[in-house]
Computed example of a mutant assay.
Amino acid sequence: MGEKTFREPLSRERVLAAAVALADAEGIKALTMRRLAADLGIEAMSLYYHLPGKEGLLDGLAETVVGEIDAAVSHIETAGADQDWRTRLRQRFLAAREVMLRHPWAPGLLGTRTTIPAGVYAYYDGIVATLISGGFSYRLAHRALHAFGSLALGFASEVFSPASAGGSMDVEVAEAEFAAMAEALPHLMAMAAAETHDVADPTLGWCDSQVEFEFTLDLLLDGLGRIRC
Results as ranks from 00 to 15, higher is better:
Gly2Lys: 14
Lys4Pro: 04
Phe6Thr: 07
Phe6Gly: 01
Pro9His: 11
Leu10Thr: 03
Arg14Gln: 05
Val15Phe: 11
Leu16Asn: 07
Leu16Glu: 05
Leu16Ile: 12
Ala18Phe: 13
Leu22Thr: 12
Glu26Cys: 12
Gly27Ala: 15
Ala30Arg: 15
Ala30Ser: 15
Leu36Gln: 13
Leu36Tyr: 15
Leu36Lys: 15
Ala38Ile: 09
Ala38Ser: 15
Asp39Gly: 15
Leu40Thr: 09
Gly41His: 13
Tyr49Met: 00
Tyr49Cys: 02
His50Phe: 05
Leu51Pro: 00
Leu58Asn: 06
Leu61Cys: 12
Leu61His: 08
Ala62Thr: 00
Val66Gly: 01
Val66Ala: 04
Gly67Val: 06
Ile69Phe: 06
Asp70Trp: 03
Asp70Arg: 09
Val73Cys: 08
His75Val: 08
Ile76Met: 13
Glu77Thr: 09
Glu77Gln: 13
Glu77Pro: 05
Ala79Cys: 11
Asp82Ile: 09
Asp82Trp: 10
Arg92Phe: 10
Arg92His: 10
Phe93Asn: 06
Phe93Lys: 08
Ala95Cys: 11
Val99His: 13
Arg102Lys: 14
Pro104Ser: 14
Trp105Leu: 09
Ala106Ile: 09
Pro107Ile: 07
Leu109His: 06
Arg113Glu: 00
Gly126Arg: 02
Val128His: 04
Leu131Glu: 02
Ser137Gln: 03
Tyr138Val: 01
Arg143Ser: 02
Gly149Ile: 07
Leu151Asp: 01
Leu153Gly: 03
Phe155Pro: 01
Glu158Met: 10
Phe160Gly: 01
Ala163Lys: 08
Gly166Pro: 00
Gly167Arg: 07
Ser168Gln: 07
Val173Arg: 14
Ala176Trp: 02
Phe178Pro: 00
Ala182Phe: 04
Ala182Trp: 04
Pro186Asn: 11
Leu188Phe: 09
Thr196Trp: 07
His197Pro: 00
Asp198Met: 03
Asp201Cys: 01
Asp201Met: 11
Asp201Leu: 09
Leu204Met: 00
Leu204Pro: 00
Gly205Thr: 02
Cys207Val: 00
Asp208Leu: 12
Asp208Trp: 09
Gln210Leu: 15
Val211Pro: 00
Glu212Asn: 09
Glu212Arg: 15
Thr216Met: 11
Leu217Val: 08
Leu217Asp: 06
Leu219Arg: 13
Leu221Gln: 04
Leu221Thr: 08
Leu221Lys: 06
Gly223Cys: 12
Arg226Met: 14
Ile227Gly: 08
Cys229Gln: 14
